[in-house]
């Protein structure tokens, strides 16, 4: 039954994708005209990342200023431990320098590239660490709390942040909780299902359509 539903959805997606295919490669151009904050970061982060990839350590030093708050913030959120977050953030940032030559603008935005490395590393760490049990208990208790990090308040000036918050609000309650527990909590979808006391297939689907809705909202607000 669920399969049939997904197929229907996919058929719709396919049509959408056809017209949208060039968007990924066009992303840096599309963001260039926008006015504020993180958007500007995105553009120069790409340039700096490409220059870092050519061995320009000065460019990397500048890149550090742009991306380190994101890397550290992701680690801190997922790991919930300052010492570990510093450690993992350092690994991630060194890895960004080491592998910058592999970055290709056509593979997505620099922000996404950086965030992907940081998130995956943080998640790997949290899953392998002994503290996982402890952390699970804590976060289980927090599962019903809105996923707003206090640190974000300091950065709220940024338009982009408000956009993400606003777009998160367009999700249904279950989509919202599934997506945020997975991303901010670093849980697998199976763990999310357990935390939310919801069927595993349902959680899988909600993460996916929740992210889809988030994407649509973020794009509409550009």
């Amino acid at each position: 039954m669920r399969t049939a539903k997904l197929v229907v959805r996919r058929a719709g997606m396919e049509n959408a994708q056809c017209t949208h295919t060039p968007r990924t490669s066009g992303r840096p151009v599309r963001t260039r005209g926008a006015p504020v904050g993180a958007v500007v970061d995105t553009v120069s982060a790409e340039t700096l990342l490409l220059r870092s990839g050519r061995g320009e350590h000065d460019a990397f030093t500048e890149l550090y200023g742009l991306v380190s708050p994101r890397v550290y913030g992701i680690c801190l959120r997922v790991l919930r431990d300052r010492a570990q977050s510093e450690e993992v953030a350092q690994e991630v940032l060194v890895e960004i320098w080491r592998t910058a030559s592999r970055y290709d603008e056509r593979l997505g935005s620099a922000t996404s590239w950086v965030a992907t490395i940081a998130h995956r590393r943080a998640v790997d760490r949290v899953r392998s660490s002994q503290a996982a049990g402890d952390r699970e208990r804590r976060a289980a208790a927090e599962a019903t709390v809105a996923p707003v990090d206090p640190v974000a308040d300091a950065a709220e000036r940024r338009l982009e942040h408000r956009q993400v918050r606003r777009c998160l609000k367009t999700l249904t309650d279950l989509q919202h909780r599934a997506v945020t527990l997975a991303y901010y909590g670093g849980y697998t979808y199976r763990q999310v299902a357990a935390l939310l006391d919801t069927a595993v297939p349902t959680v899988k689907t909600r993460i996916r359509d929740g992210l889809g809705k988030l994407r649509d909202c973020l794009e509409a607000s550009r």
Partner: peptide, 9 residues
């Protein structure tokens, strides 16, 4: 990736 916009620290 955009979900990390609110995490900058």
């Amino acid at each position: 990736g955009r979900l990390s916009d609110v995490l900058l620290t």
